[in-house]
Structure formats: structure tokens, C-alpha cells
Design a protein around this nucleic acid. Structure first.
Lengths: 217, 217
DNA sequence: ATTTATTTTTAGTCTTGCCTAAAAAAATAT
DNA sequence: ATATTTTTTTAGGCAAGACTAAAAATAAAT
């Protein structure tokens, strides 16, 4: 049995490991999970004992296949519940995170899979993140970050990487939503801000904002 | 903040207190919750500190208004989730208990109330138990136990008190479901078994079974 | 009204998951 | 190549929630 706390560690390692890093540092995990490195060391040993992680002292952590699957299942549940909350229960995309964070730990394979079917097998959550299937697999994401585009490129806003309510409320305020057509008009070298054309007007977004917006071309 | 464990104690005390008893014994709670009396004593002190329970050493426990409301909210969530699982996710009534037991602890007022609306404000769960409203209130139950009826009385099966999967599977096997018309044909004095007429045939049910079946007349 | 039996509480431990402070290892700088 | 800084681990503790065994209070029985 994987505990709630263990699931949170698996998720953190999974997300950090995503960036093509071989092994994740205990410090990085501690920061992500808002705890202390010493706590991480303890937990990582438990994960290794349970064959969920590979751990060599002073050399970081990686997930085993079993650990990766467990992490993907938690993420699958999180994202399916987010879809449920938005599509069926009138939550807005900036309200779902905390509740999904609780719901992702409910243990019942039947529940996940029936929920998946009930929602019509969605492929992405309300922020554009892909939903892993039963085997933890999902189609590779082909959207590209605004900062990596050329001036004049146009695409559909299909992924926002930051799901915090502050960021999403900023997008709401500026009338930016998933599915919107966006064109890159100008890059400002001074502060790396970007001028974009949205459906109704031009706006200047900061580098910090741009970093979190991805378009499908 | 009420912890998961505290919620389980509140629920147990609420259910035991229902039988018109003034104060519930620590032993009774321990049995219900499958723990030990000493653990109950500890927890009950915490509940009293938090103003959720009244506790006098050696004299049992009762809920405060605040505790009663908290308990009713947990039960409300439990029963709403059961309805969701059966009506929307193809669970049968003998599969919902364990999952609802987890879902009842999810904290989000918006979630409960939106779920309630999404389900069309159901008044009873799949076993016939009433669903408390936001204020913890529900209509008094008027169904009566089979053992308290006269020979010849007829009614609709509207509540099964035991929600364990073994009992519900017994009912499935004998083709007994909520809403069925049932007539009491005979009481056997030797073992208190009851002969009843169901929609398709006569069956003899034991006292233990009869104790859990309630009819609306 | 005592004795006996039962119930309840207290005292002391254990596990999980977290923490701080100190020690050890690794990485970086001189 | 050695000294310094940073990262990581170890050691020791704390809180929550549970347990066992022993003590205290209450209830039942003679």
C-alpha cells in the first residue's frame, strides 16, 4: 500500500524527472514539496525499500517502472477529477487545484476508470495537461512555448504550465483562455516581454507570463 | 481543522447517539470503530477540547451542536457520493461503501453543494438512508421494520440498515431491491424467521435479515 | 455492605511523517 | 592541491493516532 505522503513524493519526483534529468536531488524534491531535505532523505529510503525509487546516497533519486506507473496513476486521477469539476460541477479552472489534490488520493481502480468513461475519455485537463491512460502513457505534447516562436507566428493557446489560482486569475482578467487564437507580434529585448495579439486586442505580457503559455501551431 | 480521524469518531458517536441515548460509552465507540477503548478516551478528550463533544470521565460522550453538524456534514458527503457512484458511475449498491468512506473526507463546501445540485438534490442514498441538507437536517424516517408489522401488511422496501457488501449481495441473490413491494405472510415463533411475499415468490428470511429491512406503508 | 466483575482511564510504547542541528560528502574556488 | 562553500545525510526529537498492560472507578452480585 502506497500512503498519501508517498504518493506526493512520487508525483514530485515524476514531475522533476520529466525534464530529462537522470536523477533528482533531494533538495529539489524538498523545494517542490515544501518540506526539508532531511525529510526527503527519510522518505526516499522508504520508497526505495518498496521498490518505487532508485536511490544512491548523495546521488539523487529516480523512479523505478513501478514508481513511475504509480505516479502516473495519481496524476491521471488528479487530471480526471479536474475535468469532472470543471465540466460537471461548474468549477472554474482556477478553483480546481486544491480539491483535485485531495481527490487524487482516493483508492479505487473502478472509480478512476468509470470516471474516465463518464467524462468521455478526455485527453487533456482544463489547463491543457495531458491525461495519462491506465498504463500511464499519453501522447507527446507538441505545443511550443511563446518565447520559442518567431515574430508573426500564430497558434492556439493549448497549455498553461502554471496552474496556481493567481496565475489563472491573471489570465481570466486579461480574457485569455485555452483554445484562443494568439499571434506573436513583438519581443522586447529590454525585459523579454512579448506583445501578442489576442482575439480582441493587443497586450504586452511579461517574460514570467510568457514562460507559461504554450501554443499549438 | 477537523482531522480525518476525528471525523470518523464524530460519525461513530453520531450514529450511536441516534438511538436516543444521552451519552455514548467509550467501549461502544471502540467497537463501532474497530479500535480500543483507550484510543477512544484519548480522542474524545481532543474532541472535547475542540468543542465538538461533551465528555465527563467515566460518564460517556455526547456531541455538541457543532460536533453534530460536523458529523452530519460527513454523512451528507458520504451519502451524496454513494448516489453519484451508483447513478453516474455504474457502481452497484454493494460496491459503494468503501469508496464513499474515503470520499466523505474531501474538504470543499463548494464540491458538496455542487455535487448535490448535479445529482438533482437526492433525498436518500442507494440504501434508503436519508441525506442531510446543508444544515444537517433531514425528514424523519417513517418506514417501519418488518419485525414490527402485522401479518398481512404490505409495503415498499425503502431502507436497508446494513450496508455491508455481504448483506447486500444476499439481497441481490434473492432478488430483493429498494422499491420492491413486500407482504408479510407469517412469523415463525421458533426462530423468529419471517415468510414474505416478494414480487415473484415467497421466501423465508431469518430474524437477522428481517431486522435490517424497513418498509414504507 | 462488601466482594467480584466490568468498564474506563492512565501510563508507557510504537509508527509515520515531519523537524532542527550537527556531521559528512561533494562541489567550487583559490 | 587545499580551503571554502554547498549539498546531503545522520542523529535526536516532536505530534498524531494507535496499542498493551496496569490502575482506578463504577456496576453487579452475594
Amino acid at each position: 500500500m502506497i500512503t498519501l505522503s508517498e504518493e506526493n513524493y512520487l508525483k514530485a519526483i515524476y514531475h522533476l524527472g520529466k525534464q530529462g534529468v537522470a536523477a533528482v536531488s533531494t533538495n529539489a524534491i524538498a523545494e517542490k514539496i515544501e518540506s526539508k531535505a532531511s525529510s526527503v532523505t527519510d522518505m526516499v529510503k522508504k520508497l526505495a525499500d518498496k521498490n518505487l525509487a532508485n536511490y544512491v546516497k548523495y546521488q539523487g533519486v529516480s523512479l523505478t517502472n513501478e514508481g513511475r506507473l504509480a505516479a502516473a496513476l495519481v496524476i491521471r486521477k488528479h487530471r480526471l477529477w479536474e475535468v469532472f469539476l470543471v465540466e460537471k460541477l461548474n468549477f472554474s479552472w482556477d478553483e480546481v487545484h486544491d480539491v483535485a489534490e485531495q481527490l487524487e488520493h482516493i483508492k479505487s481502480l473502478k472509480l478512476v476508470n468509470e470516471l474516465d468513461a463518464f467524462l468521455g475519455f478526455p485527453t487533456h485537463d482544463p489547463h491543457g495537461d495531458p491525461i495519462p491512460d491506465k498504463d500511464g502513457k499519453y501522447a507527446p505534447n507538441k505545443s511550443v512555448n511563446i518565447l520559442d516562436l518567431e515574430i508573426g507566428s500564430e497558434g492556439i493557446l493549448s497549455l498553461v504550465k502554471d496552474s496556481s489560482d493567481v496565475f489563472l486569475k491573471y489570465l481570466n482578467k486579461n480574457n485569455l483562455a485555452l483554445g484562443d487564437v494568439i499571434k506573436v507580434l513583438e519581443f522586447e529585448p529590454f525585459d523579454d516581454s512579448v506583445t501578442i495579439q489576442t482575439k480582441e486586442r493587443q497586450i504586452i505580457i511579461s517574460k514570467e507570463v510568457a514562460k507559461n503559455l504554450y501554443l499549438s501551431l
